[in-house]
């Protein structure tokens, strides 16, 4: 088990390898389809992003509404592949990691190697459990998007697995080969 804190600096990224279990502590940011569209539009127009993205982690998630007395509602990962087309632009601005579920495109894999960044997998379908690692949540940008707004989350030991590392190794492919039966 490897513990990391945000923002990600120094050699942390290159020390992570596909399959490593990681616990994340610190600030992370949610963004889904619509928020990604706006972030990338801002980059294309040369406008500032709503938060300093350098060394940060984006979590592909849209939480359920926060019940009274809780810091956040259920908050599990959404399918990462829908964000593939936006990922390179954000990595080019200094984003160091994303968290989601499911495999990524070849383009994303190359971009992760090029920009020395990683893709973490969180487990889909266990959102109530994952919410227990989120200590604080607040809407940071695009509140009109509702669950698709960008939330700033304070997380403690948020559990993920390195799915694609900065060395080009893809856990999804690697383990498929190990566990596939003829």
């Amino acid at each position: 088990m490897r513990e990391i804190t945000t923002p990600l600096t120094g050699n942390v990224i290159s020390e992570l390898h596909a399959g490593d279990k990681v616990e994340i502590t610190g600030t992370i940011y949610t963004a889904r389809d619509q928020a990604h569209k706006r972030l990338v539009e801002s980059i294309e127009k040369g406008k500032p992003l709503p938060f300093n993205i350098e060394g940060q982690i984006i979590y592909y998630a849209g939480p359920s509404p926060t019940p009274p007395g809780k810091p956040v509602g259920s908050i599990g990962p959404t399918t990462s592949a829908r964000m593939d087309v936006f990922t390179q632009a954000l990595l080019s601005k200094g984003l160091k990691a994303t968290i989601g579920k499911g495999p990524r495109s070849a383009e994303v894999k190359h971009a992760l190697a090029e920009y020395k960044a990683v893709y973490f997998a969180a487990v889909g379908g266990i959102a109530a459990l994952l919410s227990s690692y989120v200590k604080k949540a607040e809407v940071l940008a695009y509140p009109d998007l509702g669950p698709e707004a960008i939330y700033r989350l304070e997380v403690e030991k948020f559990p993920v697995v390195v799915a694609i590392d900065a060395h080009g190794v893809d856990l999804y492919e690697k383990n498929r080969e190990i566990f596939r039966q003829p």
């Binding site: 579920k101 997998a121 487990v123 889909g124 999804y172 383990n175 498929r176 566990f179």
Partner: peptide, 9 residues
């Protein structure tokens, strides 16, 4: 197929 829980193998 080898996909496994959470698709992680």
């Amino acid at each position: 197929l080898g996909i496994g829980p959470a698709g992680l193998g």
